[in-house]
Write a protein that binds this DNA or RNA. Sequence first.
DNA 1: AGAATTGCAAGAGCACTGCTCTCGGTGTGC
DNA 2: GCACACCGAGAGCAGTGCTCTTGCAATTCT
Lengths: 233, 233
Amino acid sequence: MSKTANSRTIARGAQTEAIKDVARRLIAEKSVSGLSLREVSREMGLVSSALYRYFATRDDLLTALILDAYNDLGQAVERADARVARADAYARWRASARAIRRWATNNPHEYALIYGTPIPGYVAPTETIEAAARVARVLGAILSESRKVEAKGAPKKSKGSDVGRYLELDSLAAIMPGVAPEGYLKALMAWTTIFGFLTFELFGQYVGSAKNLNLMFDRVVDELAISLNLEAP
Amino acid sequence: MSKTANSRTIARGAQTEAIKDVARRLIAEKSVSGLSLREVSREMGLVSSALYRYFATRDDLLTALILDAYNDLGQAVERADARVARADAYARWRASARAIRRWATNNPHEYALIYGTPIPGYVAPTETIEAAARVARVLGAILSESRKVEAKGAPKKSKGSDVGRYLELDSLAAIMPGVAPEGYLKALMAWTTIFGFLTFELFGQYVGSAKNLNLMFDRVVDELAISLNLEAP
DNA sequence: AGAATTGCAAGAGCACTGCTCTCGGTGTGC
DNA sequence: GCACACCGAGAGCAGTGCTCTTGCAATTCT
């Protein structure tokens, strides 16, 4: 078919990656709003119009960077989780949460790119929401494989849970299979708290109330672990 | 003194307000990054350079808008809290939380202005962190006036709490006097979860997992109330 | 192998931005 | 009444995203 690897298509791929690399560097140095196609082109010894051969618009370039950022974060969390004994749900949770924070503090501008204010006229293509789910999938797996153990507990006297009225049970069941729907809300809350923490930390809302964010984050992670019933084996 | 109200200074004040109003409208219609001084000036029948008599730079205008937004939100929450019986801590908490969300969903772009990605070279002047504390003060008061009731409970067997190592005890004590430092973390977590929720809602991170955010928010608020030990009188 | 097609970078140009500076007119305080 | 401070107009600078056309080089078809 057409997917032959002639020198032109590989050159194109390399050039595309080079553009993204330069853009990433500029974003890291300045910020996302300080990124300009002209500066990227200058940096590469190109004329600005040449970049449009690779990215039709500035937003397209940003979309590509967003996708990469999601995958980069997802991969970092996956690896952190993989380094811990599967059976130790608490250790996996803590390692994953710390990996998220480590990535965020090491790449604050890329974090802002994916979890900060959305780009004006930008609507996330389905690929990005797929990539965004990658880190959620790790956390979901931890819960799944933890909950199976105590699944034989009392079936809960629950006074008619109504989670189905406000949550997408199917999507959530796919991410954390085996977890009872009654647990979905706490899972989502924990997820929200982790990223809310990082957003507050990176965007400066904690100044004045916290002084050691490393320690505070660990304490938050522990509190969440308790509310999620995650304990060492 | 110099603060005489001659026609010029009042005209200046009015013009300043008019500029902010137009800017607010444009931000609401488009977004914060879509705000341009030239468009504001066009809208007002002025030449762009004239605006610089009132705001030395675009960021200065944004700072003024940020300040207004914080105060607007703070006032909305204060009023919501004031409408509920002081003794009913749970009702106060729920009313305040709902007021925050109502304001956020009604003014998404202004929410993004204060809780979204910070402006590039922007460092918040002390006035803004003062204004930012306004809503926190409401939540703190609710906790304070609730906790006093059960303060006579067992002094907690606490295995040497270390909150002082990572939290600014003095600032927090000023916001929620009477609350034991051991409760600070949960208070900060609840605050984080509320705004994390709104950030996720407004920035689109919940698409695919939630379908009724009104209901979900209320459930989250209830869960937080439990973790904060807030109960109806 | 030669011809046709396709991809690429260059350059000029458009409409826009934030911001600066200078220039007259006007209300203010002495 | 006068000097002063303020304000709006206008021109201009450097920068932006993006478009379009023009040659050149590499690939593909015949």
